[in-house]
Simulated scan of single mutants.
Amino acid sequence: MGNSRAYPVFRTTDAVEAWTQALRLKALLEERDDEVILMADLLTVEDARRMAAVLPEAEFDYADPRVDPVTRDFLEFGMDISAAEDSVLEPELPLAVLHYVQPGTVEDRFVRAVGKGTASIGRHGRWPDDTETDSYGVAKYDGVEVLFNCDDVSWLQPADHHTVFVHVGKWGDLPRAEKLAAHLGSTVLGGAQLGW
């Protein structure tokens, strides 16, 4: 039980640069999960259309739950984003998507499709044991995540930049985070946050 601790280790206004640095960290994982987690909030019609083109198999939903005024049942978004008229799609916004993909399939296109909303790419894995820092990898907690247009892994602090996080054990592991940040020529940019 529990959550990882996520440390911010790189920040930039260039989404491609953030993704490139996340890939450099991902390469250091000793083990990697078979799936990549993609999430995004879509604020504009253009954002929704770009993301639907990148993730045609994904299920899109309302970013904020909507309730039928009569039945009080939760409403599901079921519109075909690519076929809907702008005037019909606009009132349905904001939308959200959570989708799992095979590594190396759509991530680069996902990064280019990110609009103004918060988005993330996460990859679970296991950091190698490091006796120098007395750090031991834990597959349940370790990994790399890049947050677009956001400063925290809880998506509560929208920003005009992108932040790369390293996830480590549930008790935190600042020495490992510092070493991973140094690999990027950076430093740890803030305290540990509650991760996945």
Rank of each mutant, 00 (worst) to 15 (best):
V111D: 01
W171P: 10
L98W: 15
L23V: 01
H183V: 10
L89Y: 03
P69R: 12
Q193T: 07
G104M: 03
A27G: 03
A177K: 06
A139V: 06
H167Y: 11
A96T: 09
E145S: 04
L156Y: 14
Q21C: 02
A40Q: 02
R50E: 05
E92M: 07
K26R: 11
D86A: 12
A139C: 11
D68P: 10
V9Q: 03
N149Q: 07
H99W: 10
K116Y: 08
E85Q: 14
Y100L: 14
M39A: 12
G191V: 09
A83P: 04
A192L: 07
V16K: 10
T118E: 13
E107A: 02
A6L: 08
Y7D: 06
V111W: 00
F148W: 01
Y136G: 15
E132N: 14
A139K: 10
E90L: 12
L156C: 14
T133W: 15
P158C: 09
T20I: 00
G78Q: 08
E31I: 00
V166Y: 05
L42C: 06
L75I: 10
T163C: 07
S4V: 04
P103A: 03
E178G: 12
A113G: 09
G117T: 01
V9P: 01
R109T: 08
E35T: 11
E92V: 04
A58N: 04
E59C: 13
L29G: 00
S82A: 13
G117R: 03
W127G: 02
E90M: 10
D80C: 07
R109F: 05
S4H: 07
T118D: 09
R123D: 04
V146F: 00
V54H: 04
A6N: 08
D142Q: 05
A113C: 08
H162V: 00
Y62M: 11
V97D: 02
R66E: 05
C150R: 05
V67S: 14
R5G: 05
H162G: 00
T131Q: 12
G185W: 08
G2A: 05
E132M: 14
R11G: 07
I121K: 01
Q102V: 13
V67W: 15
A52N: 03
V144I: 02
G169Y: 14
G195Y: 03
T20W: 00
L43S: 13
G195Q: 01
A48N: 04
A6D: 11
E145Y: 01
R123T: 02
A181C: 10
D33W: 06
L98S: 13
V70M: 15
P175G: 09
T105I: 06
L194E: 12
Y100H: 12
Y141N: 05
P8Y: 01
T20P: 00
P56M: 05
Y100T: 11
L43F: 09
G125Q: 02
D152R: 11
Y100G: 06
V166Q: 06
T187E: 15
V36F: 00
T13N: 05
L147Y: 07
P128S: 08
V88S: 15
E145D: 08
G191L: 06
K116P: 07
P175K: 14
D64N: 15
T133N: 15
G169D: 09
A192K: 06
D151I: 02
L95N: 04
L156T: 13
V106F: 06
F110P: 04
D33S: 03
D152W: 03
E76A: 15
A182D: 13
D80I: 08
T187F: 15
S186V: 10
C150Y: 01
